[in-house]
Design a protein around this nucleic acid. Structure first.
Length: 382
DNA sequence: AAGACGGGGCA
DNA sequence: TGCCCAGTCTT
């Protein structure tokens, strides 16, 4: 037969090549687990898929220490999947209260009812079937199948992603589809034979939680506790703290504004901001025009500013005085400043004040306005 | 004060 | 399909 294999569909982009993988990855994890892993968590080695499932759902967004008490109360209140399925939803929600992510509790209850109604009260052992149940995704399905039934299936939770990113030197945010796909392929490729799947899976989780931690990985604190250190790409290239690559910061909205430094003798003109909105009620340098989403609308030209400044008094000259950018929690403001020298101040209402430069520190100025005044008007104050 | 976290729901 | 969200805890 010489026919070339038919291909109905080609991947949009070729799958990236996997890094070369050590053949003893799983062996090291299992050996470490047996000596240093966690062996006495109440849901371990119960031989009860219900307990495994319950613990995995609780552990999805929650640390072991927080789960312990809830798990114990749940098992006492709902000892079997039948008991949970038969319970009123309110009872389940009440038992979950305080754990957070309450859709987990609703899905838990739905899942229990499906297992009882459609699977005879027995959790399926096929990870794909498990993953079709509410609240169980690919990683949780693998954990349940491995721990409950010894099924050879790969997990990929946040801890595992961190270990993989470091050991295999994977660049890119692990939440990115392509990066995650690569990690899934690695997870499948480094799996041990089925008889080691339980200590291996537990070991990966435990290493991520206790050795290869985000902030203080053992390899950098001088403990020689990590069994993967000698083959760790991040360790050998000194990128441990740089991996995994953090979620890309979503762009902060940016706005621009033109502010006037109106000077008369040794005083500067301030305007009280409206009570609502940015810098509400604080004194600010006067804005000409609005804060603007169109960044290139600023700075306004000198003639426009000169026109506006006529309200402040007789304008002798206007000149560019620099620019500053200030980042708030929710947006970034590009401030363009122009200096206007005023010879004869006009009468203004109480929302305006001519403030002696020497007294600026006693006025409630927004930090970026204060900075602008200090750096652009009186550098000596800085 | 901001980020981490697995799965579900929606554009 | 890919992106955003949730609720609490950690850093």
């Amino acid at each position: 037969m010489t026919a070339t294999p038919r291909r109905t569909r080609r991947p949009a982009q070729p799958a990236p090549a996997l890094p070369s993988l050590p053949d003893d990855f799983a062996v090291r994890v299992i050996a470490w687990q047996q000596r240093h892993g966690r062996h006495h968590l109440p849901w371990q080695n119960t031989g009860d898929a219900y307990r495994t499932w319950l613990s995995e759902i609780m552990l999805q967004q929650t640390q072991v220490s927080a789960v312990l008490g809830y798990y114990a109360r749940f098992i006492e209140r709902f000892p079997t999947v039948q008991a949970l399925a038969a319970a009123p939803a309110d009872d389940v929600m009440a038992a979950w209260a305080g754990l957070g992510y309450y859709t987990r509790a609703r899905n838990l209850h739905r899942c229990a009812r499906i297992v009882v109604a459609e699977h005879g009260g027995v959790f399926p052992r096929d990870p794909e079937v498990l993953a079709s149940l509410p609240g169980i995704g690919r990683s949780t399905a693998a954990a349940i199948a491995a721990f409950s039934y010894g099924v050879r299936a790969a997990i990929l939770d946040g801890n595992v992603k961190r270990v993989f990113a470091r050991v295999f030197g994977i660049d890119g945010f692990p939440g990115d589809k392509r990066v995650e796909d690569t990690m899934w392929r690695i997870a499948e490729a480094v799996l041990p034979p089925a008889d080691g799947i339980q200590p291996y899976t537990q070991g990966l989780m435990d290493m991520g939680a206790t050795v290869c931690t985000r902030g203080k990985p053992a390899c950098l604190t001088g403990e020689r506790a990590c069994p993967l250190e000698s083959l760790c790409e991040a360790r050998s290239t000194d990128r441990v703290m740089a991996l995994p690559v953090p979620r890309p910061r979503k762009a902060i909205p940016e706005r621009a504004a033109t502010l006037v430094i109106a000077l008369h003798a040794d005083t500067v003109l301030l305007q009280r901001r409206p009570q609502r909105g940015i810098w509400g009620g604080l004194w600010s340098l006067p804005l000409v025009g609005d804060m603007d989403d169109a960044l290139d609308a600023h700075p306004l030209d000198a003639d426009t500013v000169r026109q506006a400044a006529r309200a402040y008094g007789t304008v002798s000259d206007v000149e560019a005085a620099g620019a500053l950018t200030h980042t708030f929690t929710h947006f970034r403001l590009h401030m363009h400043l122009l200096r206007a020298n005023i010879t004869k101040p006009a009468a203004l209402d109480d929302d305006w004040r001519w403030v002696p430069l020497a007294q600026l520190s006693s006025v409630g100025l927004p930090a970026p306005v204060k900075l602008a005044l200090e750096t652009l008007v009186q550098p000596s104050l800085v």
